[in-house]
């Protein structure tokens, strides 16, 4: 019942929004600027997919995103586990990591472009930098919050440090790692778009900048919808995993 209500009220709100938007330009409510219309945006989207151009750029963007994100997982999770387990390295690196964490990573674009090259390299780097910190921090916090009883249990049965990592710390910190991944995906996609908008020769972000420069509002909006859907789908999928994990965890704790 509640779910149904959520669906139809939410749907109605979206329909009203689209209706107002559709009517705004023809009825002359908005005179100063071109805000386009939903039907024109759909037409522009169809046109973009018909020429197939958009798929190439989407592919380029996704490649950059997944490579950068994979790198951030490979670096973020093990480092997070280490920093969560051992106090001294954590205290040693904490202020430094916090300083980098508070730096807007996208502001490093000029440096990254010179260091890794326009386009692919710089975008992968900025995706990595955006995604790695939420993953690292959440992993470290997750590891630190694991009940020490489990660690002592492994120790008292003669388990090695390696056993502690693989049998307790990694599985135990999966839910916070997934939370870190969700936050990381958002930052990563932000990085991807900014990176490509700032300096690139291909990719969705570059296309957005291109159509923006030529004042093609309808095409621009179609691309924005594509990027937004991308982010929305990714985040929603991970949220689903997250909810399932939390559910299962609660079951085992009963």
């Amino acid at each position: 019942m509640k779910k149904q209500q959520r669906l139809w009220i939410g749907g109605l709100a979206i329909v009203i929004f689209l209706g107002l938007w559709e009517a705004a330009m023809p009825l002359g409510w908005v005179k100063v600027a071109d805000i386009s219309r939903p039907t024109l945006v759909v037409k522009a989207f169809v046109e973009l997919t018909r020429t197939g151009d958009i798929f190439h750029h989407l592919f380029v963007s996704l490649k950059e995103f997944f490579l950068g994100f994979a790198l951030s997982l490979v670096v973020g999770v093990p480092l997070g586990v280490l920093l969560g387990r051992y106090r001294t390295p954590f205290l040693f690196l904490d202020p430094l990591l916090m300083a980098i964490y508070t730096t807007p990573r996208v502001a490093m674009m000029p440096l990254l472009v010179v260091a890794f090259g326009v386009g692919f390299g710089a975008t992968v780097a900025v995706v990595f930098l955006g995604a790695v910190f939420p993953i690292l921090v959440n992993t470290a916090v997750g590891v630190r919050e694991i009940d020490r009883v489990w660690i002592r249990a492994v120790e008292s049965f003669g388990g090695t440090e390696w056993n502690i990592f693989t049998k307790v710390l990694l599985p135990g910190s999966v839910p916070p790692i997934v939370t870190g991944i969700r936050l990381g995906v958002g930052r990563g996609i932000l990085g991807m778009v900014v990176g490509e908008m700032y300096a690139a020769t291909e990719g969705i972000g570059q296309q957005i900048a291109l159509y923006g420069n030529s004042f093609a509002v309808s095409e621009l909006m179609a691309l924005i919808v594509v990027v937004s859907l991308l982010g929305f789908v990714f985040v929603s999928l991970i949220r689903l995993v997250e909810d399932r994990l939390r559910y299962r965890r609660m079951e085992t704790e009963v």
Binding site: G10, A13, G212, L220, M221, V227, F234, V235
Partner: peptide
């Protein structure tokens, strides 16, 4: 229920992609 969809789309999507629109407007 009415506001939620808009907020979530804004939250999950990269807001920077709107930048060229702001420049135009």
């Amino acid at each position: 229920y009415a506001i939620d969809p808009f907020i979530w789309v804004l939250y999950a999507s990269p807001t920077v992609s709107l930048w060229p629109l702001f420049i135009i407007w």
